[in-house]
Design a protein around this nucleic acid. Structure first.
Lengths: 339, 339
DNA sequence: TTGTAAGCGTTATCAA
DNA sequence: TTGATAACGCTTACAA
């Protein structure tokens, strides 16, 4: 059915291997032969069969991105998705295809299938799916992989890429202090994930540099229980005299703002707010939300290019890559350094 | 290096084809032989090489999902992403892997590469990327594909899956009428895409059933110019006496609500609101937003299973599949049929 | 129920 | 600069 390398060879009167050389850009071919072969390929509308090539070369030119299937939010996470977009672009521009797979915890996991059956050349693993059994498998098979997000185990021995949550948080808090806020509360959905911990560390680190502030530090966490969150916010303001909130995402920021409005606290004069993640919504909020912007596109791009380097066995300069955050100053934290 | 089918054959003392039969679940094997072969595979930690299988069988057990790279929003679209999640799940449960590729308009497009080089067995194409040249290529190569979303060309001759935008819109407007709202405005970012057109048709269709309402119909579109949107909203209320808005997404709904609040219109007593897409935010808005909920998970699932049927050359009952929407009644449209 | 052998389309080694 | 030829690991008639 399809036209093969042999058909081209026959038509031009050369051997299949010569045609193969042209396809692969081998330079030892004479210009004349190359030209004739290329013409024949165009005339016959020849396209190399990637299945045969994969088989012959022992590679697939495909990388896999593992998705955390347990995490309902992964796919509704705009930021994660920008990373996916970036990974695909980086892959494509390096001649790789991108396979996406949910990681289930089943015994015959989809990941081990990819690895054992050699369906891809390497994989990007979200930190939430890093577990020792899987690492053993990968290392034992000498399979190239990169972790997306700082993992909570083996972080010194793995190649990973993450946002600099520590600095992002620290900068935001320093900004709030500079604006004259004194009692800054950190509000998050959890405090256990690696990125939450890093942000909390950054929060403390900024407070440490302003005397008397660390003592008043307070971290609120609420899971997804937003009415609980609202209560805690009220308490923080009324009982502890909180005058600013650093929120770990936009949903939390939204609830903080709602609570403040319900109690007629004015923003930003009485209470300031900064949120992580610069959602499209953030700039339209009332007041517009200051945000720690995270370049998840870059995150994905770095992860993909790091993986491809590993696949090609190039030397990798550093094991861990941290992406800088950018602080976006809007009205919600604009107190102007007033007391 | 790797252990192959021959190693298993040798160890058990059978021929490679017998081992192959066991791998492929061929039933003519004697229980005894099967058992011995399975034991040997376990002992040697054998896994079939998918590259070799793909080559031998002439298939890849992979489907591709094309992403609209031009559309910045695709990847930040929560709903689209739930479809991706569903597609992956459906693929996996049918033994397929999922490849994701951006569609660039370059001459050597990534899609034609997938098709010509036989990298995947079929593809899911978003309606926004349907163009005649591409369809020609696919049809000419006899390549299985399914369109995600109703396409604006050839919709009668293609297999596609979409949400029932017409009914969703119609139901929402009927609901508003039932609640006693009289002058309902449809607010959208555009009016040209197929789904917008269908929604507008549904909007008109509902109005037609209530006398005197169709004459007062008004469709507002604003692109991404939200200050323009706010002006138009004001006009609609003040000059045309609008008392309800059907919004084509949450961002629009947000701006409508903001405008209403700024002008001290009370919701839902003076003005009612319904939005398309039940974002997590919708239920936390003030008042909580009534929404036309779209099951994009089901959308993706249907698309994937339809494609896999086509790949297997099974007869497909209908060319076009419409997914029902669900109306979620919250406070923002609860007027209770008052005048 | 099992074995033999050809074949899938390309790459890669070696020789010319 | 080119050509023969083996090899990649599996599937699949066909034969036994």
């Amino acid at each position: 059915m399809g036209v093969t390398i042999k058909d081209i060879a026959k038509r031009v009167g050369v051997s299949p291997s010569t045609v193969s050389r042209v396809i692969n850009g081998n330079t030892v071919i004479s210009d004349e032969t190359r030209k004739k072969i290329q013409e024949a390929m165009a005339e016959l509308n020849y396209h190399p069969n990637s299945r045969a090539r994969n088989f012959a070369t022992g590679s697939t030119n495909t990388i896999a991105l593992v998705i955390d299937a347990e995490d309902e939010n992964t796919f509704s996470n705009t930021f994660f998705n920008r990373s996916v977009y970036a990974i695909e672009k980086a892959a494509q521009s390096n001649g790789y295809n991108l396979l996406i797979t949910n990681d289930t915890d089943d015994a015959g996991s989809s990941i081990s299938e990819l690895v054992y059956e050699k369906k891809v050349d390497g994989l990007i693993l979200p930190s939430s799916r890093v577990r020792s059994g899987l690492l053993e498998l990968l290392n034992q098979e000498g399979f190239p992989y990169v972790v997306l997000g700082e993992p909570d185990i083996c972080s010194d021995n793995l190649d990973w890429v993450d946002v600099n949550n520590f600095e992002g948080s620290k900068n935001a808090v320093t900004h709030l202090l500079d604006q004259g806020y004194k009692r800054i509360v950190f509000a998050a959905e959890d405090t256990k994930t690696v990125f939450s911990k890093k942000r909390i560390e950054g929060y403390y680190s900024a407070l440490d540099e302003e005397k008397g502030c660390r003592e008043k530090a307070e971290v609120i966490s609420c899971g997804e229980n937003y009415s609980l969150l609202c209560e805690k916010i009220e308490d923080a303001i009324e009982k502890q005299g909180a005058d600013a909130f650093l929120c770990s995402n936009n949903v939390i920021a939204y609830h903080v703002m709602k609570t403040l409005k319900n109690h007629n606290y004015s923003m930003p004069s009485q209470v300031g707010i900064v949120t992580f993640d610069n959602y499209p919504f953030a700039e339209y909020m009332d007041p517009p939300l200051s945000a720690v912007d995270v370049d998840t596109y870059l995150l994905g791009e770095k992860a993909a290019s790091l993986l491809i380097k590993k696949i090609n066995k190039e030397e990798v300069e550093k094991r861990a890559v941290l992406i800088d955050t950018e602080f976006i100053f809007r009205d919600s934290s604009k107190r102007g350094g007033l007391e």
